[in-house]
């Protein structure tokens, strides 16, 4: 068993009347990519800020790299890199100045740890004299990651690093994370993209401040306990509307060019016949294996 690097026990956090996190228990192991998956407002950012020692929990304890998140915050901050969800570098400093500033804050310099950031930074280095505020979204993200890595942290916390980033850059970003993991770094990352959940070693599904489950992506998929139908049709929206009035319906939703459908009594109620009766004779129905997005949708709706 790998070493536990982060441990949350009984952690809760409120803002006024709003309960952001409720009794979170979670262990994250050394060297893994751990994904926190959940909708906006689920409590992902609060969890990350607590782990990064930027917030104090109302109750419960968080241990990070062997330190207490409240008492030993100075020690923790030296060893972690944090990339917040909102771009928070200095817009009126250049790319190079931002990086040099972050390096100096941590008592190091760019040359010393260049090998760590080379993979990412070399892609924006041609623009190193440009002001950070003038960079495109993808380039800002690469600069923020470079700044979070420059002091050679043991733990990297990335809050929705790929939101608003195009599909190709997202793939490249995850390839980069994989290489950092191979160098031994532990990565805690949140994302609203379900396809990215597959690239994590383990994931936690979070909703309304509560963890719905923690497991490897493969196990999350294996625990899916519905028969999943994929329906191919030109009239997807009409099919969905019809399925929602089917007695046995659990979920009916769009999935690319298909409609995905789960039901409560697949043995007794025949969906194909139902659709036929509703006038959708010419549809192709087959059962398929779920992916993470199917699991998430069906879990969230429970």
């Amino acid at each position: 068993m790998a070493k536990t690097l982060i441990s949350c026990s009984g952690v809760s956090k409120h803002y006024g009347d709003v309960e952001a996190l409720n009794n979170i228990n979670l262990d994250i192991f050394s060297g893994e990519i751990f994904g926190v998956i959940g909708p906006d407002g689920a409590g992902k950012t609060s969890l990350f800020r607590l782990v990064a020692s930027l917030l104090i929990p109302d109750s419960g304890k968080i241990s990070v790299l062997g330190y207490d998140s409240v008492k030993d915050y100075r020690a923790i901050r030296k060893k972690l890199g944090y990339m917040p969800g909102r771009f928070s570098l200095y817009q009126d400093l250049s790319v190079e100045e931002n990086l040099a500033f972050y390096a100096s804050v941590y008592g190091t310099n760019i040359e010393k740890n260049y090998h760590l950031i080379e993979d990412v930074y070399s892609q924006i280095e041609p623009f190193k004299k440009r002001r950070a505020g003038k960079l495109s979204g993808g380039m800002k993200q690469k600069l923020a990651l470079s700044c979070a890595l420059i002091h050679s942290p043991e733990l990297l916390i990335l809050d929705e690093p790929t939101t608003g980033v195009d599909a190709v850059s997202r793939r490249e970003f995850w390839e980069m994370l994989k290489r950092l993991k191979d160098k031994g770094m532990t990565i805690l990352v949140s994302t609203p993209y379900m396809d990215e959940a597959k690239r994590c070693d383990r994931i936690a599904l979070v909703q309304n401040g509560v963890i719905l489950g923690v497991d490897t992506p493969e196990m999350v998929i294996r625990q899916f306990n519905f028969k999943l139908f994929a329906i191919r049709s030109e009239v997807r929206h009409e099919i969905i509307r019809a399925l929602r009035t089917f007695d046995s319906v659990h979920q009916a939703y769009l999935a690319g060019q298909l409609v995905h459908f789960t039901q409560v009594n697949p043995e007794t109620d025949d969906v194909e016949r139902y659709l036929m009766d509703q006038g959708f004779g010419d549809v192709d129905i087959r059962t398929i294996e779920p992916d993470i997005e199917d699991c998430f949708i069906n879990l969230m709706m429970n």
């Binding site: 909708p39 608003g164 939703y253 769009l254 997005e293 998430f296 969230m300």
Partner: peptide
């Protein structure tokens, strides 16, 4: 322009039903 960025998979689909 990127109306569903950062939104969860269920809300994204509800959004597309509005579009439709």
């Amino acid at each position: 322009d990127e109306p569903t960025g950062g939104v969860d998979p269920i809300t994204r689909r509800q959004f597309w039903e509005l579009i439709y």
